[in-house]
């Protein structure tokens, strides 16, 4: 599946090939221009990933005109209510902060660690004083364990000695399944080294193998994570990727964001992950 992703990237990079031709003339072919963009109403943007055993955190921002100030617009009048599987409602407090573990910013936080089991359904209700109202529902997927994580070094020496990594897992045959696969180096507190999402359309019920190119050095510490995700989160991730790729690619069709929430933009999901930490020797 990694190779499919590589192919897609090639298509997106097709304009570069044209630039090789144009580059023969050695000219600067880009310039700043003024554009008038249509004014669209600002929407509430929610980003919430519930993790079993962790205190619920949530980020609520607003969408802004593209060419406005880069500072995120954070509304301060938003109330957030999380409904637990047993129907109990928990109001998340507006207390902007940063998660020390993963350096992630949040605007709202709960009080107690979350108890969640596969199959549990949670609901989210986000409102502000302007009447904007975002709702969402999500069910925790089952956990799909990593079967094996292995690596292999090439025959080269010194700095040229590199390894590729393989991860294998068994896909459940009875369901349409979606995954997100990540590899972090050293810790999960910064951007991942590898990150892609996939479905089991062509591999339903099989032992799925995911791999990388020769890119890791001896003694690298890798955190390999497999998330079993729901379909709506998968579509959200794909649409975010498509929307970002469309900016700057004349061959790409601009894509609308397929949010998992209603009434705004964003994602609400419960993470179900299996993680291995390996040191390449």
């Amino acid at each position: 599946m990694l190779l499919v992703v590589s192919f897609k990237r090639f298509i997106y990079q097709a304009p570069l090939l044209l630039a090789v031709l144009a580059g023969a003339a050695g000219c600067n072919l880009q310039k700043d221009i003024d554009v008038e963009l249509p004014v669209v109403p600002s929407q509430l943007v929610t980003e919430c990933y519930l993790v079993p055993g962790e205190v619920p955190r949530l980020t609520v921002t607003e969408s802004v005109p593209y060419l406005s100030s880069p500072q995120p617009s954070v509304p301060t009048d938003v109330t957030v209510v999380l409904t637990l599987p047993n129907g109990q409602q928990e109001r998340l407090s507006f207390k902007p902060g940063q998660d020390k573990t993963n350096q992630k910013l949040y605007t709202h936080i709960g009080k107690t660690p979350l108890v969640a089991r596969p199959g549990d359904t949670f609901s989210l209700d986000v409102r502000d004083t302007q009447g904007r109202h975002v709702t969402a529902t999500a069910t925790m997927p089952t956990r799909v364990p990593l079967d094996t994580v292995e690596w292999k070094f090439n025959d080269k020496a010194g700095e040229q000695r590199k390894a590729y990594l393989l991860a294998k897992f068994q896909d459940p045959a009875a369901t349409a399944d979606f995954y997100r696969f990540q590899i972090h180096k050293d810790s999960i507190s910064k951007d991942s080294d590898r990150d892609f999402s996939l479905d089991d359309r062509l591999t339903n019920g099989q032992l799925i193998t995911l791999g990388t190119s020769y890119r890791y050095s001896p003694a690298d510490t890798l955190l390999v994570t497999l998330y079993h995700i729901d379909q709506s989160y998968y579509h959200f991730l794909e649409s975010v990727q498509d929307a970002r790729n469309a900016n700057g690619n004349p061959f790409a069709q601009p894509a609308a964001i397929r949010s998992t929430v209603q009434g705004g933009v964003g994602v609400f999901t419960i993470l179900s992950a299996d993680r291995r930490t390996v040191i390449l020797k």
Binding site: V35, P38, V45, S63, Y66, K190, D191, A243, N247
Partner: peptide, 27 residues
């Protein structure tokens, strides 16, 4: 052509660079 009218900040699962995700209006 279609240009994004708006954007939103997207952190994703872990901290790091905050991405600006384009929001496209009518085609």
């Amino acid at each position: 052509t279609t240009l994004p009218s708006g954007r939103f900040a997207f952190q994703d699962l872990f901290g790091g660079d905050v991405a600006a995700v384009p929001i496209y209006p009518d085609r």
